[in-house]
Each structure stands twice: as structure tokens, then as C-alpha cells.
């Protein structure tokens, strides 16, 4: 159960064109996450969601402000699920699961592979799997390192609606079984409401627009009317936000 502590985080990129303006991807945001919660970061394109994850995972460094990702005082162990599966195409599925481990945990890897229903693929190459199956492996891989904090960057946005729905269910199964701290980035509000305990809304320019708590039991079925009501209400608030902020 990880603790994420972000204080006055800012990330500015140098201007893409000579003589242009620098790009503020994240503008002075602060928030904390504590406990085994599923938190979504929602916002339109260009609001800094991916940059935030990059900073949390160490791929990017902040321009100013502090970021602390800890687990009982020590640096947290991270798991990461990307938009594309990012499996090594030249290694088998099982080898991909083992690549991200520091130990030789074949049985652990096999167990998580089974939890997403892909035990039979352990000896296959990623090229032999469909996009949805590859992403499932990606999710199993992330869970299998038993991370303190799980980062997910729009993991279902490249999949068709049917596959995405099925994967959301797999994700909820895994999450309710393991109860990790999850930071889930998406542009899809409806998806965020279905999955999360808390939604942080970012606006273009990288500032926090809203911080919403969802108090419904897990796992949530998409067809559940209570879930649908919440989705409608929050969608409404989004419609307010769109004309309020400058269009990008």
C-alpha cells in the first residue's frame, strides 16, 4: 500500500519551435494518494496526464516541485501498463513476464498469467497473440511483480470496445483480489467512474480542475444503474468544464 505525495509539481518543456513559447505540461499541482485505492486521472489530450506518469516512473524529471512515491518509508516498487502492450517481440510470453522480475519467480509469473486466462500462451511469441491478448499479458506482467504502486496509462484506448470491456472486467478481478494502489490515466470519464474510488480531473495546461470521490462497492458492473447514475452526473460536470477552459 503505497503513498504518493506530490507537492507543487511543475513540468515545462522547451518550445518545440525556435522562438516559440515553452509548453507547460503540468502547472503547479499538488495531491496525495494514500492506501489501497484505485485513483483515476482524467482529462482531455494535452492536459499532462502522460507526463505525470512519466515523472512518477522516472522517465522524466520535474522542472520544479517534489514527487515522493514511497511504501513504508522506502521507495515504492512500480508496475506499469502502457497503451500498447510493450512486450519484447523476440521473447516468449513467459520470458516477458520474467524479464521484469529480479528473481526467478516462474511460478508467480505463471499464476498471474492464469489469472488473466492466458496460461496456454506461455510458450508463444507476442506476434502470435491478438492486441487484446497482448494487453492482457501486459496487465498480468504489471501485477505479477506485486508492485506497491501500479501505473496504468490509457491501457484500453487502443482496443475495440468489446475487448476493452472484457479487459476491464479482468482488471477489476485482479484488483479486487490483490487490492494494489492504482493510478489509472484515461480520457474516458465513463471508464474512470466504473473503475475508480477517486477521480482527479486535470485541465489543459496541467492544473487540477476537480477531485471526485466515488463511493460504490467493488467490483462494479458497467450495466449497474447506480454506476450509470454516477457516470451521468460526472459527465455533466465535464460538460461544464469544457467551455470554461480555453479550447486547445
Amino acid at each position: 500500500m503505497a503513498r504518493v505525495d506530490i507537492q507543487r509539481l511543475t513540468k515545462i518543456f522547451p518550445p518545440p519551435l525556435k522562438g516559440g513559447d515553452p509548453v507547460t505540461a503540468i502547472g503547479d499541482i499538488s495531491f496525495e494518494i494514500d492506501g489501497n485505492v484505485f485513483v483515476s486521472i482524467v482529462g482531455p489530450s494535452g492536459c499532462g496526464k502522460s507526463t505525470l506518469l512519466n515523472i512518477l516512473s522516472g522517465v522524466e524529471t520535474p522542472t520544479s516541485g517534489t514527487v515522493a512515491v514511497t511504501e513504508a518509508g522506502r521507495p515504492a516498487r512500480l508496475g506499469y501498463v502502457f497503451q500498447d502492450a510493450r512486450l519484447l517481440p523476440w521473447r516468449t510470453v513467459l520470458d516477458n513476464m520474467l524479464y521484469v522480475r529480479d528473481d526467478d519467480g516462474t511460478d508467480k509469473a505463471a499464476r498471474y498469467l492464469e489469472m488473466v486466462g492466458l496460461s496456454h500462451t506461455h510458450d508463444m511469441f507476442p506476434g502470435q497473440l491478438s492486441g487484446g491478448m497482448q494487453q492482457r499479458v501486459g496487465i498480468a506482467r504489471a501485477f505479477s511483480v506485486e508492485p506497491d504502486l501500479l501505473l496504468m496509462d490509457e491501457p484500453f484506448s487502443h482496443l475495440d470496445a468489446i475487448t476493452a470491456r472484457s479487459l476491464r472486467d479482468h482488471l477489476q478481478e485482479l484488483w479486487t483480489a490483490t487490492r494494489k494502489t492504482v493510478l489509472f490515466v484515461t480520457h474516458d470519464v465513463v471508464e474512470a467512474v466504473q473503475l475508480s474510488d477517486r477521480i482527479i480531473v486535470l485541465a489543459p495546461g496541467g492544473r487540477i480542475f476537480d477531485d471526485i470521490t466515488i463511493d460504490l462497492p467493488h467490483p462494479r458492473r458497467a450495466a449497474d444503474p447506480k454506476v450509470a447514475t454516477q457516470q451521468a452526473e460526472i459527465l455533466g460536470r465535464f460538460e461544464e468544464m469544457q467551455p470554461a477552459s480555453a479550447s486547445d
Binding site: 511543475t10 515545462i12 522547451p14 515553452p22 507547460t24 502547472g27 503547479d28 522542472t63 520544479s64 495546461g205 492544473r207
Partner: peptide, 9 residues
């Protein structure tokens, strides 16, 4: 909201 101007090194 724009952040205070940041000086690049």
C-alpha cells in the same frame, strides 16, 4: 494560469 516564468539554464 501560467506558472512564474522559468529560466532555463
Amino acid at each position: 494560469m501560467t506558472a512564474a516564468p522559468v529560466a532555463f539554464p
